[in-house]
Design a protein around this nucleic acid. Structure first.
Lengths: 197, 197
DNA sequence: TTGCGAAGCGGACCCGCGGTCCGTATCTTT
DNA sequence: AAAGATACGGACCGCGGGTCCGCTTCGCAA
């Protein structure tokens, strides 16, 4: 019953804002020098409209991120191997992490903005919860593997947006190098299987 | 020649500010609701004094952190095994990471404040550079181990302050559990030694 | 087509915070 | 004791996120 469909101008403006913000985040050097006023202006919209549509700064960033992330999310939830379900963990985990890394390489500022937002902790954003749950389930699908919860966190931490930004941006580590490094790291973590002792 | 010793009131005020800030950070729920004005007031000092002494917010946080971290830094640089030099990597790396984890458990808000500061990236703070270099050197001291640079980053990422805060604070994971989880993760990463293939 | 309530618009406005400035107070040195 | 250097402190500034409310636009119904 509550579902009233929004007015036409509202949806148009929402789209305009998303587009403008996307653009601004792509251009800017650092996420924090994209101000809400900037976004509103670039979208040809008042600040009131912007805040009405997205609640607050985080809302906007989350909406953007969500939109960008959707294809990847779909691939993981119901796509073909190696990303989709039905792939054995030892193959799927590296694939998912690699995809995540690539995503953050392709959406650096945005990912940075998202993780930097939320009061400083990425761990409250519900999308983190999803990735963590997925990874954890996969890790625990490896026979005899203990400590899946922490391992999932630690693996995700290896693809943190600011780390990616530091390596790819400041240190100029080439994309393929990073992917290879991550892949090897993951292999190490998973490769030992059940530890002796 | 440049070394002019500071005035007495200056050093006294500096100490007062550090003490007050330490206290405030210990009490507060989240680092960002400790304002500079708060610190100044709690120290019984004007804002001008505070900024003169520490430059800016980051300066203050870094100074605090540095002070707290010093003992650990010393232990690592020139202490007895297993933290000090001269310990074989496979023993020293877990020890150092465990010490780091414990430090962040004992100084949660402070560590959080530090990593959240610096324009959003912990990777610019020079103390990160030091830990990374140390870890990297140790990792590369393991015969045949490749990708030490990234591995060092990834291991440090597993002890990120906000992750620690999330697990210990929100999720109420007990301290010993966390230490054990980290230890096992580290063992996994290092345990494989040289990978086949 | 027109009328009319509701939904949405926009930008002036507010507030809190980091950081600066400068007249005044305090220390140190000779 | 006097003078110069150094530090103090809080009024002040600019900026950015978020709110408010009079006005516009939409869309339904007669």
């Amino acid at each position: 019953m509550p579902e009233r469909k929004p007015r036409k101008d509202a949806t148009r403006n929402r789209a305009a804002v998303l587009a403008a913000a996307d653009d601004l985040y792509a251009r800017c050097a650092s996420p924090e020098d994209v101000t809400m006023a900037d976004v509103a202006a670039a979208a040809g919209v008042g600040k009131g409209t912007l805040f009405r549509a997205f609640g607050d700064r985080n809302g906007l960033i989350r909406a953007l991120y969500q939109a960008r992330l959707e294809p990847l999310g779909n691939s993981v939830e119901a796509g073909p191997p190696p990303l989709g379900p039905g792939t054995p963990p030892l193959e799927r985990i590296p694939a998912v992490l690699d995809a995540l890394l690539c995503f953050k390489l392709d959406n650096r500022r945005l990912a940075l903005a998202l993780e930097g937002a939320g009061g400083g902790s990425p761990y409250l954003a519900e999308h983190y919860e999803r990735w963590h749950a997925l990874l954890r389930a996969m890790v625990e699908g490896i026979p005899g593997f203990m400590g899946g919860d922490f391992t999932a966190h630690a693996l995700l931490a290896a693809t943190r947006a600011d780390l990616v930004e530091h390596l790819a941006g400041q240190e100029r580590v080439p994309r393929e190098q990073l992917r290879a490094d991550l892949a090897e790291f993951v292999r190490r973590v998973l490769g030992a299987g059940v530890l002796p002792g």
